[in-house]
Design a binder for these strands. Structure first.
Lengths: 223, 223
DNA sequence: CCTACCGATCGGTAGG
DNA sequence: CCTACCGATCGGTAGG
């Protein structure tokens, strides 16, 4: 495997993109972008790290364990990350990024009931699809550095806000009982997210679970 | 502080209580029961350990950290436990024991709707009252030894069964939509238990939260 | 991406 | 309940 000129493990080096008016840099531009193969391998490392950290915890899942699961030596991981906590941060980044992207794609739904239903289905499927990613996200926050935490928290808040506002809209439209929207939003997030602790794909159906959650919040017309 | 003759850190030593027909043991009976003060101090250690493990995680919360939070030296903890994982097990024991006791006290309620409502209120208050105890219980299972795990799992299953059967009864009685009872039970457990991740006593009301959960499952009559 | 290695932390023990 | 201490693990580095 040929090392790219610069990867995430190298010095930050992400100078601001030259503004349109900036003078052209002299000479051959440095290879700032890591190669596609490199990024691909890093993605794989993150996936495996999430599995190891889920099974053993962040602290006791050693870099030797992660490397072994990848068929590498520990020192080779330092070619991809500068420190262990970078691995954790990458897991967290992937978790909120994918979650947030998908939720944002649902923001356009006008009808309050449809929007909240879609959010519930989304959250149920998201967590069930990637249990180890979210197990790390939910259970190993203590391992994050302060800086990583500071980066992630605003995104998390935005995420929760989508649920709070959808819950509030559903209340205003009379679809669910009036209560504190933040509380109810967290109840909804809890009932869906909790699945990483019990859901067994061999036994449970993702759709069945998602629909059960929707039906709990919006009970089908009763006789 | 005077050491009791034997504490949990000593050899198991819990010989079965002599059956009524067993011959009287000769001589002064050995002091098998740890003193009340000793047990009290151990309880305190468990409380503090739960806080330390919640804040830092089980692996990175060192025995030095736990001892310091108690105003002790690390080696002194070995007067109370034989190994670090005993501390974790004691936290888990306290969590399921109190949870199970309270749930069992609710089993007598006949009306399915009342019973499930009571279970929901119970779970909400339980977790909100003792967030660090349950944070450890929910997030640091990986630190348990296999034996501790084997001891705790059956109790946990019994606990879940209470919810599954109450959910099933509420479905049969037509109070909630028909679905897989196990799935719905876990949804209910999730929406209540999740509170250890977001509930802020300075901002949120425990009763308000509990009632919001009940209202989500049993919506008040709508106009 | 690997071999070899160092330093710090930490669970646990000795002995009082 | 404490002081002193040991051994193993593990994150991280040197150097190729």
């Amino acid at each position: 495997m040929t090392p790219p000129a610069a990867g995430p493990a190298a010095e930050p080096d992400d100078a601001p993109a030259p503004s349109p008016a900036a003078p052209r840099k002299r000479g051959r531009p440095r290879n700032l972008e890591p190669s596609a193969e490199y990024r691909q391998r890093l993605e794989n490392i993150v996936t495996v790290a999430a599995e190891v950290f889920t099974a053993q915890g962040y602290e006791s899942g050693s870099l030797d364990d992660v490397a072994a699961a990848l068929g590498l030596r520990k020192a080779s991981l330092y070619y991809y990350v500068k420190k262990k906590s970078d691995l954790l941060r990458l897991v967290f980044d992937r978790a909120i990024t994918t979650a947030l992207e998908q939720v944002e794609a649902l923001g356009h739904i006008e009808d309050p009931k449809d929007r909240l239903s879609a959010l519930i289905r989304h959250q149920a499927h998201l967590v069930v699809r990637d249990p180890s990613l979210f197990a790390v996200f939910f259970d190993h926050r203590a391992g994050l550095t302060d800086e990583a935490m500071a980066d992630i928290e605003p995104n998390e808040r935005r995420y929760v806000r989508h649920f709070v506002s959808a819950v509030g809209a559903a209340m205003d439209a009379g679809h669910i009982a009036k209560a504190d929207p933040r509380t109810v939003a967290h109840a909804v997030l809890g009932m869906t997210s909790w699945s990483y602790k019990w859901f067994d794909p061999a036994r449970d159906s993702a759709d069945g679970f998602a629909e059960a959650c929707v039906a709990l919040v919006f009970p089908p017309i009763r006789t």
